[in-house]
């Protein structure tokens, strides 16, 4: 896990920078900080501000409509047969636009040997994302049902084109677009989110894009709910539908239960229990998700 170590080190180095940026805020024309805790969301495994597996309409970073913010994250998911790692950075502009880059690495451990790829064979991919808030305010619009709505797109590039082809994947790179709506019902201390994603990614793209069963983009629903327990703590669950494009292996929807704790305005720690179903013929991939996010 030396990559995880390096990513954690980067995150630790980022934190004082982030804190420093906030202290300097009053003297600058472009402001930083000002969001309420947890309202920037955490970082998804694909780098957007959101939940852990699915994006929210909230824009990352602590900035308000007058400034810029950002977040860096490291996420590790330990499964029975695989280890998944995601780390990246994201920028929030004027609480309106979010730009993100995330690196994903999927270590096949012993499965790699079983599949003839070699023990510890690792799929990797880069995810570039952009998201824009188009209407509504999830937090302040408490007198209307209108949610905060954002639209976004991701472009993803997988490192292992040859293996992707071998398992029946059509492309080693792909794009997806999504619309996401977030509503915080303060009256009942609830956060609700729904996302529609137009995608043909196999296991988020780690097994490529499109396949011998289906090449086309399809609409996938993703849902999450959170119960606000304190200004610093939210617990909830997520559900993410996924395509099933490869003949070689069945792909399941994902589900998790999570708790996210804003240690302070800069750092949020999230733990979850995830059920990622069957991945590359290895069933019951249930395990622990841990994510550390630092932002300003």
């Amino acid at each position: 896990m030396s990559r995880l170590g390096a990513a954690c080190l980067a995150l630790v180095m980022w934190t004082p920078l982030a804190a420093h940026a906030q202290e300097d805020a009053p003297a600058r024309d472009i402001e930083t900080g000002g969001k309420l805790k947890l309202t920037r969301g955490i970082s998804t495994i694909e780098g957007q501000g959101g939940g852990g597996l699915t994006p929210w309409a909230l824009i990352t970073g602590n900035e308000t409509d007058r400034g810029v913010g950002g977040a860096a994250h490291v996420t590790a998911v330990e499964l029975p047969d695989y280890t998944f790692l995601s780390y990246g950075v994201a920028l929030g502009l004027f609480d309106r636009v979010e730009l993100s880059y995330t690196r994903q690495e999927f270590d096949t451990r012993d499965v790699g040997a079983a599949l003839g790829l070699g023990r510890g064979f690792t799929f990797g991919q880069d995810v570039w994302g952009a998201k824009m808030r188009v209407i509504g305010d999830a937090i302040y619009d408490q007198d209307t049902w209108l949610p905060q709505v954002a639209i976004g797109a991701n472009w993803k590039k997988n490192d292992q084109g040859a293996v992707v082809s071998a398992v029946g994947g059509t492309d080693d790179q792909g794009w997806e677009t999504y619309a996401t709506a977030t509503k915080i019902l303060l009256d009942s201390s609830l956060l609700l989110n729904g996302t529609l994603r137009w995608t043909n990614a196999n296991q988020t793209g780690l097994l490529g894009y499109g396949g011998n069963l289906n090449d086309d983009h399809e609409l996938m629903g993703e849902f999450s709910a959170g119960w606000l327990l304190s200004p610093d703590l939210v617990v909830g669950a997520e559900y993410r539908m996924k395509p099933d494009n490869l003949a070689i292996a069945n792909e399941d929807d994902w589900v998790d239960i999570y708790a996210a704790w804003a240690i302070n305005h800069q750092v949020t720690l999230t733990g979850a229990y995830v059920d990622l179903g069957s991945i590359a013929t290895f069933d019951n991939q249930r395990g622990v998700y841990l994510s550390l996010q630092a932002g300003f």
């Binding site: 402001e31 900080g33 304190s230």
Partner: peptide
């Protein structure tokens, strides 16, 4: 500005918490 509005919200949350108002009740006022 928004940051000041939010700062006031934070101070109100803290004051309500010190009074022992349940978080769910705090949110109904917020």
């Amino acid at each position: 500005i928004t940051a000041e509005f939010n700062a006031l919200v934070e101070l109100l949350q803290a004051a309500m918490a010190r009074e022992g108002v349940a978080f769910s009740a705090q949110n109904r006022l917020l």
